[in-house]
């Protein structure tokens, strides 16, 4: 009598060989021709399927590049390395631009926000944005973390009630920008490792801003007088990033801002 265990092993091996032959035959019989270039493109993608390129996943983007001539620099995860590889495979020119990274245009953590009230409802920004009086400022970060939930790279966190981007991890897919119901996250071309940002979105008159926040922009215009890269519109300062150079130095404005709301976002370049 053969031991049962040996019998079992033999049966499994026999079955495995039968299926191996079957699968091998099926692979040849129903082979789908993938163009070599498309296969190379697919291999060149990072494969995280974040959707940052605007297509459903990496494969969709590869096909869009191959069939419809989509631009090579759409992949935020791979950055310029993947863009160059795609351009090389497709035999097209690619000039590297500055990588886009999100900046949170609110600089007020819980301690800086005034007129805060207890909120007991659904703990998402999308629900809370419809409720008046959670905090005095109707423009600033709600701190409930809709952006944190959608980030696939663990690159944005709520720190004392304010969304803070972790640029070490951020790939610039833009999911947080789309998730924010207050539209205070903006994609900015990072021409330098340290980018200057006006971290306030409040469009109300200065007197009102002072009543709801200890750091909000009051539209005083001191920064605009120091450097014409700043513009004041609707009581709020903003920076013209098209004119921002790697060597742009705005430290004078940072120092002179009476509300200390011109801040520096420090990124590591990919």
């Amino acid at each position: 009598m053969v031991p049962t265990i040996i019998l079992a092993v033999c049966v499994m091996l026999a079955l495995a060989s039968v299926f191996a032959v079957l699968l091998g035959w099926a692979n040849v019989r129903w082979h789908v021709d993938v163009p070599e270039k498309l296969q190379q493109l697919t291999d060149a993608m990072p494969g995280v399927n974040c959707g940052g390129c605007g297509f459903i996943g990496c494969n969709e983007y590869a096909e869009a590049v191959f069939h419809d001539g989509a631009p090579p620099d759409k992949c935020p995860v791979g950055g310029s390395a993947v863009a160059e590889r795609i351009a090389e495979i497709m035999g097209i020119e690619h000039t590297a631009g500055a990588p886009l990274r999100p900046v949170v245009l609110c600089g007020a953590d819980f301690d800086a926000r005034l007129k805060r009230a207890e909120y007991r409802g659904e703990p998402t920004c999308a629900a809370a944005v419809m409720v008046a009086g959670i905090q005095g400022c109707t423009y600033g970060c709600l701190g409930l973390g809709d952006c944190v939930v959608v980030c696939k790279f663990d690159a944005i966190h709520i720190v004392n009630g304010l969304a803070v981007v972790d640029y070490e991890k951020c790939v610039g897919c833009g999911a947080c920008v789309r998730a924010c119901p207050r539209n205070i996250i903006q994609m900015v071309p990072f021409h330098a490792d340290a980018m200057t940002v006006v971290a306030c979105s409040n469009l109300d008159p200065g007197k009102v801003v002072r009543g709801v926040c200890t750091v909000g922009c009051i539209g005083c215009g001191i920064c605009a007088k120091l450097d014409d890269i700043f513009t004041i519109a609707d009581n709020n300062a903003s920076i013209d990033y098209d004119r921002y150079q790697a060597d742009t130095d705005l430290s004078a404005a940072i120092e002179k801002c009476p509300r200390k709301i011109i801040r520096v976002a420090r990124a590591s370049r990919p």
Binding site: A132, G133, P205, K207, V208
Partner: peptide, 13 residues
């Protein structure tokens, strides 16, 4: 007096 802004209870600013 000078115009200002207010947030009404229904969330309208």
């Amino acid at each position: 007096a000078a115009a200002t802004v207010v947030t009404l209870p229904n969330g309208q600013h």
